[in-house]
Amino acid sequence: MISTNPDIHIELEGTPEEVRLALETLRTRLTERPLEACNAGTLEIVLAEVLNNVVEHALAGRSDGLIALTGNYDKCCWHLKVRDNGARMPEDQIPAGHAPQVETELMDLPEGGFGWMMVRTLACDINYDRAADGWNVLTFALPDDKP
């Protein structure tokens, strides 16, 4: 039985520094391989937001947080899975990701709250599950033709 290696498999601890390292590793791997045309920039933006959300919310206040990222590229589309051992999503729902209002006075401009809006804009088929082993599982796709 031959099992195909996923194109991406990265495990990291749930800290901002490890997220940066994971994204740098991913970028190096994508430029080493003939995957240049596969939306690497958008992939990095979406993964940064997803991983930062895990670190800042699911794993907030934890020092034993773990994240496992797997992904493969098939038929002009990335299929990603991000698992973590943190707290479940509020009400087991992916946040709505409404766009923060930017037509405001200078001092009222938003400095955050963009993450899920960016993920929802760039990714599709986003699905969240709380697995039986107590890990969060988020899956999503990034087709090349989505702007």
Binding site: L23, A48, N52, M107, P110, G112, F114
Partner: peptide
Amino acid sequence: DFIDSSGLGAIVAAMK
């Protein structure tokens, strides 16, 4: 090469 939404937020904070 790259900014995320936290980096963007920091640039907005710098402007404020």
